[in-house]
Design a protein around this nucleic acid. Structure first.
Length: 487
RNA sequence: GGCGCUAUCGUCUAGGGGUUAGGACGUGAGAUUCUCAAUCUUAAAACACGGGUUCGAUUCCCGUUAGCGCUACCA
């Protein structure tokens, strides 16, 4: 019993009212990193008490997103919708001990009072008028069919304090808090009740969540105290903002994690990027000379992660930096590791490669250094994986608009077909000799050939490309250049 | 409005009473050649403002401003 209380227990508790979004993913990542760093337990809990907005599909999406980012969990997923009895019981306990009471004010009455308060310029706050209703009267009214909510009796005086692992000591005047609702009239708990009841029941040691909950925390601290429990460690994470420095939302573009997968981002890149958004390893990233480290493996992240390194200020999501991480990771992968990811892109694009596995791996190795995105392999790089690809119009226009050049390329094609030894050196030698023979600049033929062979104006070194494509394909595509129509 | 949090290059950040305020992304310039989105070199770019404390503040304190968050029978 003693030992279990010594290990950390951390949870990620998303509400399935949407896909796993960037902010949620980072909260999950930090929580997971912390759990793994401390060799603790990582628990997944689905906060689905808002029935209208929650859905099973969203749960699936959230789990997919977490798996995609390489996170696993030791317990759960638990569903709050299946634990309603615990919350009702907790609310009853609070009433019995005098910490909570039934409130019979209707939504309409509350609304009217709020409107009135707004008019007089006073702070709209529930006045606690139902505090004086006796337990007996309350029971009677319920028996008569009224459906009250349960409210927490917030002390009128004093203040509530707690220590935040990120922001330090916090103090809130109780007078600022209102008697918040614990149980709605339909018996479903509100967030404050369900989190505290669950975090207590699941013996959480650390509550890691977004800073949007910082102002809610005193209410929950009050709940812990009323329940006679000691506080977990709170660690609030600064928020992630869009480029306009407002909270990241749909109008900033993709906010769902899986949308980044669909955009051709590699999971390790996204994870690495996210880890350094609002957290820094500090001096640990410094290197003797040369730049600070920015690329960290999962193991390194786990080893280095600490609540101390969490920033206090919000961070803007930087797409360019993400793109850079993506290129770095794509570049560093072994082709065999990249292949399945690329195959997924091909499937999504309904494309079938027409070459052997060895040829494909060789092409990937050749293309990797200049790929920025997995999507490249299913678009501009298609000429390396089969004959089914489209020519980039601008490239054709720029390098193949001259009919003489096209004719020469075709002739060059038949010479390549006849070449006995097809190597990087021999192909270059042949082309340059041909250019001299025709009195044309080698560059013109090289640029034209590149377009004819790859459909793109940009590619790796031409003769390496030739070797990669193979003699037959090179000859064939060059010969076809003559028949190209440019316009 | 009230309460809370925050403030270092455009962005992510390191640092911290005395520093040429460091790195990364992005941007500019140059080099390289068969193309560039590759590579190399290089440049510009920041301590929000005002008061304290101090021999000395970007760093500590207070205020201002700005941004963000919370202020529901959402989470």
């Amino acid at each position: 019993m003693k030992s279990s209380s010594e290990t950390t227990r951390v949870r990620f508790a998303p509400s399935p009212t949407g896909f796993l979004h960037v902010g949620g993913a980072r909260t999950a990542l930090f929580s997971w990193l912390f759990a793994r760093h401390t060799e603790g337990t990582f628990i997944l809990r689905i906060e689905d008490t808002d029935f209208e907005r929650s859905s099973a599909d969203m749960v699936t999406g959230i789990l997919d997103g977490m798996r995609w980012l390489g996170m696993d969990w030791d317990e759960g997923p638990f569903y709050q919708s299946q634990r309603l009895e615990l919350y009702a019981r907790t609310a009853m306990q609070l009433i019995e001990n005098g910490y909570a009471y039934r409130c019979f004010c209707t939504r309409e009455e509350l609304e009217a009072r709020r409107a009135a308060a707004a008019e007089t310029g006073t702070v709209p706050r529930y006045d606690g008028r139902c505090r004086t209703i006796s337990r007996e009267d309350a029971e009677t009214r319920i028996a008569l069919g009224e459906r009250p909510v349960v409210r927490f009796k917030v002390p009128r005086e004093g203040s509530t304090t707690f220590q935040d692992a990120v922001f330090g000591p916090m103090e809130f005047a109780n007078a600022e808090l209102e008697d918040f609702v614990l149980l709605r009239s339909d018996g479903i708990p509100t967030y404050h009740l369900s989190v505290v009841a669950d975090d207590l029941d699941m013996r959480m040691t650390h509550i890691i969540r977004g800073a949007d909950h910082l102002s809610n925390t005193p209410k929950q601290v009050l709940l812990y105290q009323a329940l006679g429990a000691s506080l977990p460690v709170f660690a609030h994470l600064p928020l992630i903002l869009g480029p306009d420095k407002t909270r990241l939302s749909k109008r900033h573009g993709a906010t769902s994690v899986m949308a980044y997968k669909d955009m051709g981002i590699v999971p390790e890149a996204f994870r690495n990027f996210l880890a350094l958004l609002g957290w820094s390893p500090g001096e640990a990233a410094k290197q003797a000379d040369g730049p600070d480290r920015e690329i960290f493996s999962t193991d390194e992240l786990i080893q280095m992660f600490s609540l101390d390194g969490i920033a206090h200020s919000n961070a803007v999501f930087n797409n360019e930096k993400l793109a850079w991480y993506n290129t770095e990771y794509i570049r560093s992968y072994d082709p065999t590791r990249l292949l399945p990811l690329i195959e997924e892109e091909w499937r999504a694009a309904d494309y079938q490669p027409a070459r052997s596995r060895e040829e494909i791996l060789a092409a990937i190795a050749l293309l990797q250094p200049r790929a920025r995105n997995l999507k490249d392999f299913a678009s501009t790089f298609l000429a390396y994986f089969g004959d089914e690809f489209t020519m980039d119009e601008a490239a054709v226009k720029k390098f193949l608009s001259d009919a003489t050049v096209r004719q020469m390329l075709a002739e060059l094609g038949s010479r390549y077909a006849a070449l006995r030894e097809f190597t990087e050196a021999s192909t270059e030698e042949l082309l340059r000799a041909y250019a001299t023979e025709k009195g044309i600049k080698a560059g013109a033929l090289i640029n034209g050939a590149r377009v004819a062979l790859t459909g793109q104006a940009v590619a790796p070194s031409l003769f390496v490309v030739m070797l990669c494509l193979g003699q037959h394909t090179v000859a064939h595509r060059l010969e076809a250049a003559a028949a190209l129509t440019v316009g």
